[in-house]
C-alpha cells in the first residue's frame, strides 16, 4: 500500500487535497497528515512515504526548509515531491525547481491538477 504524506498547517487544505486524491483513484492509499515541516520530517524518518505533498507557508519549519531537508537527505531524496501553494509565480517556481520539486500546483487544489501531476511525474502505475 502506498502512503501519501500531506503537509499543510490548514486542516481544511489537507482535507481538500486528500479528497481530490481519493477522487482520482488513490482509494487504496494510506494518507498521513502533518501540520508543519517539523512534524513532516518526523513522519518521513519513521515511515515509508511514496509521495510528499506540501504547502510552502507554514509555521515552525516552512516548505522551503522541509524541501531542503528532504532533497538533501540520501534516505529521503528519492521521494517525489509536489508543492501545493497559494503563492506561486515564475520566480518562486524556478527556486523550487532548483531545490528538486517534481510538481508545483497552484491553490486551490483540484482533482485534475493532481491527476496531471501524478501522471507527469510518478506515472499512472502509482494508482496500481
Amino acid at each position: 500500500m502506498r502512503t501519501i504524506l500531506i503537509v499543510d498547517d490548514s486542516a481544511t487544505a489537507r482535507r481538500i487535497i486528500q479528497q481530490c486524491l481519493e477522487m482520482i483513484g488513490c482509494t487504496s492509499c494510506e494518507f498521513v497528515h502533518a501540520a508543519d515541516g517539523i512534524e513532516a520530517l518526523g513522519i518521513l524518518r519513521s515511515r515509508d512515504i511514496s509521495l510528499l505533498i506540501t504547502d510552502m507557508n507554514m509555521p515552525n519549519l516552512d516548505g522551503t526548509g522541509l524541501l531542503k531537508a528532504v532533497k538533501g537527505s540520501p534516505k529521503l531524496n528519492h521521494i517525489p515531491v509536489f508543492v501545493i501553494s497559494s503563492l506561486t509565480n515564475p520566480a518562486l517556481e524556478n527556486e523550487l525547481k532548483s531545490i528538486g520539486v517534481d510538481k508545483i500546483i497552484y491553490k486551490p487544489a483540484s482533482p485534475q491538477k493532481l491527476l496531471d501531476g501524478i501522471e507527469q511525474t510518478v506515472g499512472k502505475e502509482f494508482f496500481e
Partner: peptide
C-alpha cells in the same frame, strides 16, 4: 490564503517574489 495567492499570481510582473504571513 487562496485569494491572496491568486491576487499575487494574477499580477503582471512575474519576477517579483511575494511573501505573506
Amino acid at each position: 490564503n487562496t485569494i491572496c495567492g491568486r491576487l499575487m499570481a494574477l499580477r503582471s510582473n512575474p519576477d517579483r517574489v511575494f511573501r505573506i504571513g
